[in-house]
C-alpha cells in the first residue's frame, strides 16, 4: 500500500509548487489510476516515489513506513516502478535485461539463486514475452521493449507496482492485455498505481481514479464518481460528454470537436 500524505514538491527556483498537498492511497488489491492533463504533476509524483526530488512537505509511505527511512534497495524490493521513458543504450539479451530486476535483491556481488531465476521466468511469463526472451534488446519494437520493462519490474517482486504511461507504445490488443494483467496482479494482492492519459481505459480497469490538475488533487473516487463532465471539462478545459461504454457499461469520455461548441453542449 502506497500512501501520499500532504505531499508538496517544488522544483529548484520554481515559483509554483509542482505538487501541492497531495494526499491519496493506492491500496493493496486494487488498481489506482492517476490522471490529469499535461503538466498536472503526474510525472513529478513518480519522481517523488523514485526519491529523485526532495519533498517540501508531507511524506510518502510504503506499507506504513516513510520511503526515505528505508534504504533505496530495500524500497526497490517492495516497490517496482516502470518509468515513462527508457532508451535501450546497449544491446543485451532480453532475459538478461529482465534479470536486472533482481539487482535490489542481489546487490554488487551475489550470484543469481534459484529464486532469482524463478522470479525472472515468472516476470517473462506474466508479461507474455516468452517468445522474445532469447532475442537482443536491439531488435525490439517500442511495444516489445515496453513489455520487457514490465517483465523486469515484475521480476523485481514486491508488493506494489507503479507504471507511468505503460501503454504509450502498445497497440490495442497489447494495451488491453497490459491492463488485464494489472487487474489480475491487483487481485493477487499487489497495490497497482498507474499513471495514464488513457481515461477510457482507466475507467474500465481502475478501482479508484485520482485526478490531478496544476499539482493538486481535484477529484478522486470510483470511476463513476470521477468520470463526470462537470469535473473533467474544467480540468481539461475542453468540452466533452460522458457516455456509457455500450459493451461493458463503464463511463467513457468523448471530447467534442472544438471550443466554440461549448455553448451548444451546455445548452
Amino acid at each position: 500500500m502506497i500512501d501520499f500524505r500532504n505531499v508538496s514538491v517544488r522544483y529548484r527556483r520554481a515559483p509554483q509548487l509542482a505538487l501541492s498537498q497531495v494526499s491519496f492511497s493506492a491500496t493493496t488489491g486494487a488498481v489506482t489510476a492517476i490522471v490529469g492533463p499535461n503538466g498536472s504533476g503526474k510525472s513529478t509524483l513518480v519522481r517523488a516515489l523514485l526519491r529523485r526530488i526532495p519533498l517540501e512537505t508531507g511524506s510518502i509511505l510504503m506499507g506504513g513506513i516513510p520511503i526515505d527511512r528505508v534504504s533505496r534497495r530495500a524500497l526497490a524490493r517492495q516497490l517496482a516502478i516502470v518509468t515513462q521513458r527508457e532508451e535501450s543504450h546497449y544491446a543485451q539479451p532480453v532475459r538478461d535485461a529482465v534479470a536486472l530486476g533482481r539487482y535490489p535483491h542481489q546487490g554488487h556481488w551475489r550470484a543469481a539463486l534459484a529464486e532469482d531465476d524463478a522470479a525472472v521466468q515468472q516476470g517473462i511469463e506474466l508479461a507474455g514475452i516468452g517468445d522474445l526472451a532469447d532475442r537482443s534488446t536491439a531488435e525490439l519494437s517500442g511495444g516489445e521493449w515496453q513489455r520487457v520493462r514490465l517483465a523486469r519490474a515484475l521480476a523485481q517482486g514486491g508488493s506494489a507496482l507503479v507504471l507511468d504511461e505503460p501503454t504509450t507504445f502498445l497497440d490495442v490488443s497489447h494495451e488491453m492485455a497490459a491492463f488485464e494483467l494489472l487487474a489480475t496482479l491487483a487481485r493477487g494482492g499487489t497495490a497497482v498505481l498507474v499513471v495514464s492519459h488513457q481515461l477510457n481505459l482507466v475507467a474500465r480497469f481502475a478501482d479508484a481514479i485520482i485526478v490531478l490538475n496544476r499539482g493538486e488533487v481535484v477529484a478522486s473516487g470510483s470511476p463513476d464518481d470521477v468520470m463526470q463532465a462537470s469535473v473533467l471539462e474544467s480540468v481539461y478545459e475542453w468540452p466533452l460528454v460522458i457516455v456509457r461504454d455500450p459493451a461493458v457499461g463503464a463511463p467513457a469520455l468523448i471530447p467534442l470537436r472544438s471550443r466554440s461548441w461549448r455553448g451548444d453542449v451546455r445548452g
Partner: peptide
C-alpha cells in the same frame, strides 16, 4: 538511464 536505475534502488 537515471530513472530506471533509481527504480531498481
Amino acid at each position: 538511464g537515471e530513472e530506471p536505475a533509481a527504480s531498481l534502488g
